[in-house]
Amino acid sequence: MVSALSGRPLPLRRLLAGLLGLLLVVAVTACDSEADREPGGQHWPTGESLDASGLVWGKGHTIHLADGTEIDTVDDFSEYAVAGDAVWFTKAAASDPTQPAENGRLYRATRDGVEATDSYVTQISATTDGRHLVLLDDVNGPKDDHGTAAFLLVVVDTETGEETIRTAEGMDDPGGVGLAEAYEEGSPWLAAVTDTTAYVSALGEHRAFDLATGEVEEVSSDDVPDPQGEPTHPRWNGSHTWRIDIGQDGSQPGLVDEAGHRIDPELSTSEWALVRWLDDDTVLAISMARVGSDGDDGIQAGDVDSLATCEVPSGACTQVPGATRDLVSEPPLFPQQAIRTGVES
């Protein structure tokens, strides 16, 4: 559920694009009256919640939760989030070109099976505790005079099944042109989700939506947290004692304490990314082993990426069992959640 990190060597950008690029997909929305932010819309199913904490990752058609639970999506997924009692996902493109495209239909996978919803989405996210499901729906919004459907920001409280937000505020006024033309110029997107707020960037503006109340305010671009830890928004852990340093001028990411002391994760590969904090002392890493010669930017047979967890202050890292991928022959690894951050920047 991702833009490439700036300031990285090309192989790392290629790695992140392959692993995370599907998680930041453009989206659009419309309608901006106060009434449009009122709870409403459909009632969503509820049940015994899955544990969305810690490391959650997926590969192919299986989502792995930190407590050992595995949820089968039956078909390979494209994007997903764990919220409430389910994994919410869209299907990957069919390998058989004769099969109809899903076009972003949202599915719900639980311990009991998979069912389709009536929503069609371009982005899926959730809060770190799994309570709020955050969607951008690209089918069910109102249409403009030319028949172009506006997209909706939809937020669901998975404890009650009620929608706290169904709106497209700030995303339906393209300034005198049709929605289709405006979206071609630059589509809105879900920029980040914290435990309290969804940030949407659209038509040159940025808005923060309170997940619980639906209240919205316009903010500057500097107020939007960057889940990938750009320098303007260092990725601190919850207690603000360590932060992810994305690296500059070709250097690899590291971990910096509040006094400014930096350590490198003890990974056996020469390239890696530090994705997000799993807790105050543990960060999720993606490493890539390359069999090609130095400076070879092409991905080839034998190149493998994997997930690992790294500890502070030691820097020691442990590979996640089973979380490896042959870059040529296997489907991507998807650590949850690239557009989600538990820290208000």
Rank of each mutant, 00 (worst) to 15 (best):
E215I: 03
P321D: 12
Y80E: 03
V216R: 15
Y107T: 00
W236F: 13
V114S: 05
W189N: 07
A338S: 11
A92I: 13
R8C: 00
R243L: 10
A149Q: 11
D67T: 05
T232C: 00
V328A: 15
H132T: 04
S220K: 14
E79I: 12
G130A: 10
D112E: 01
G214I: 14
A273I: 08
V87C: 12
R325Q: 14
D257I: 13
K59H: 10
E79K: 14
L15N: 03
T213P: 02
A149M: 06
D36S: 14
P331Q: 12
E115R: 11
R243I: 01
E79N: 14
L12P: 00
I165A: 05
G18C: 03
V82H: 10
A27R: 07
A150G: 14
S78Q: 15
T309F: 02
A202Q: 06
E230P: 00
R290T: 00
E34T: 07
C317W: 01
V312R: 02
E162Y: 09
S270F: 01
W277R: 12
D281N: 13
D67H: 07
I244T: 10
H206T: 05
A198W: 04
R325G: 03
R235N: 04
P231I: 01
I244E: 07
P331W: 15
L135R: 09
P234A: 04
D112P: 00
D112H: 06
D249T: 03
V177Y: 05
L20T: 04
D223Q: 13
P225W: 03
N237W: 10
E217Y: 04
W236P: 01
V312I: 13
S49I: 03
E344A: 09
T122P: 03
V200R: 15
G250F: 06
S306P: 00
A180R: 13
I71Q: 08
T241L: 08
T213V: 11
D223K: 13
T324W: 15
E266F: 03
H61N: 14
R235I: 01
L20V: 05
P253K: 11
G18T: 08
R340F: 00
E344I: 13
V224S: 11
Q42W: 12
A66W: 02
L19M: 15
K91W: 06
E34R: 08
P253C: 07
V25F: 04
R243W: 15
P313C: 07
D279C: 03
G40A: 09
Y120V: 00
E102H: 14
V121C: 06
Q337N: 01
